[in-house]
Amino acid sequence: MLLAIGAAALPASAQDAADLLVRTTRLENQLRQLSGQIEQLQFENRRLTEQLRKFQEDVDFRLSERGGSRSGAAPASPPAGQPPQPARQRRGDAFDPAANPGSAGAPRQIGEVIDDDFAGSSTAGQGPLDISGVGRPGPQGALSPTAPRGPSVAAAGQAASSREIYDVAYAHVLRKEYERAEMGFREFLQSYPRDRLAPDATFWLGESYFQRQRYREAAEQFLKISRDYPKAGKGADSLLKLGMALNGLGARDQACATYAKVGVDFPSASNAVRKGVEREQKRARCA
């Protein structure tokens, strides 16, 4: 009798275990779907925040232009019977970039000069690397590398770490979603400009431009690595990419000078970089 009861109980327990396994698997699938939806919503939120920021910048720019045109108009004469208003005097401690063009804070052309030590290389005499007149100017919405970078609204609204933002943006690079990658890396650099991943983020931001044939913006980012992060791990790669971007802009001489600079600044560059330099030198028909 006891044996019969035990035999009947075994199938019931096995059935319960199978049901529990099915339910667990179903819950795991639902959890994965919810996680994907949350990630998508976070990305959409960041995208909308970026669009709002661009809109606000555009409005501010238009208002400043309108204010400047008004200030440039002839001052209206005061009504009869009222004394004329005294002219506004410029503050004595105000910074004037026209009077101090070489001081810190004065505007400079992006990518104006590559390091002075390049003058001693085999390509000396060609002058400093200047991409200010190369190619077409970037779109109005593009961020200038010298523009002040405040905290991102999206990063402030969400407690996302620098590594999380970087990983999401890099995942877009791996999926060849370069427009989304650009947005992610720009958000990273705005929110964490001094993070240890900033040089890599700058490189991949340039790569996201390069892959969409936006060579000028790409060159600005690759040049920024050579200027601001000369000892970065991607220094040699960035110089190679800078030459490729310059060649894409039609600046063959500057591209060839940049390829030659790779060997000067990075004599121990990886074999892949050296082969890439040789390949691009042949493609550009460098002397």
Rank of each mutant, 00 (worst) to 15 (best):
L2N: 09
I5N: 09
G6K: 14
A9H: 12
L10Y: 10
A12Q: 11
A14Q: 09
D19I: 15
L20M: 11
V22P: 01
R23S: 15
R23V: 14
T24C: 09
E28M: 11
Q30W: 14
E39Y: 09
L41Q: 13
L41H: 06
F43Y: 06
N45I: 05
N45G: 11
R46C: 15
R47M: 09
E50D: 15
E50W: 06
K54C: 02
K54Q: 12
F55Q: 15
D58V: 07
F61Y: 12
E65A: 08
E65H: 13
G68P: 00
A73K: 02
A74I: 08
P75R: 03
A76H: 08
P78Y: 02
G81Q: 04
P83I: 06
R88K: 06
P97G: 02
A98I: 06
A98V: 12
A99T: 11
N100C: 09
A104S: 14
G105W: 08
E112C: 11
D117I: 13
A124W: 02
G125Q: 03
L129R: 03
P137V: 09
P139Q: 05
G141E: 10
A142H: 05
L143A: 10
P145H: 08
T146M: 02
T146E: 10
P148C: 04
G150N: 09
P151I: 13
P151C: 12
A155Y: 00
G157F: 15
I165V: 09
I165P: 04
A169N: 00
A171T: 04
A171N: 07
H172K: 04
Y178P: 01
R180K: 12
A181V: 01
M183K: 07
M183C: 07
G184H: 00
F188C: 01
Q190V: 08
Q190E: 11
Y192Q: 00
D195H: 11
T202F: 03
F203L: 05
F203R: 00
F203C: 02
Y209I: 01
R214W: 00
Y215P: 03
R216H: 10
R216L: 12
R216C: 04
A219F: 04
K224S: 14
I225V: 11
I225C: 01
R227P: 00
D228R: 15
D228A: 10
Y229H: 08
G233N: 13
K234R: 10
D237F: 03
L242H: 05
M244H: 06
M244Y: 09
R252E: 03
D253E: 14
Q254H: 09
A255C: 04
A257D: 15
A260Q: 14
A260S: 08
P267K: 06
S268V: 09
A272T: 13
G276R: 01
E278Y: 02
Q281A: 06
K282V: 07
K282L: 07
R283W: 08
A284V: 05
R285L: 12
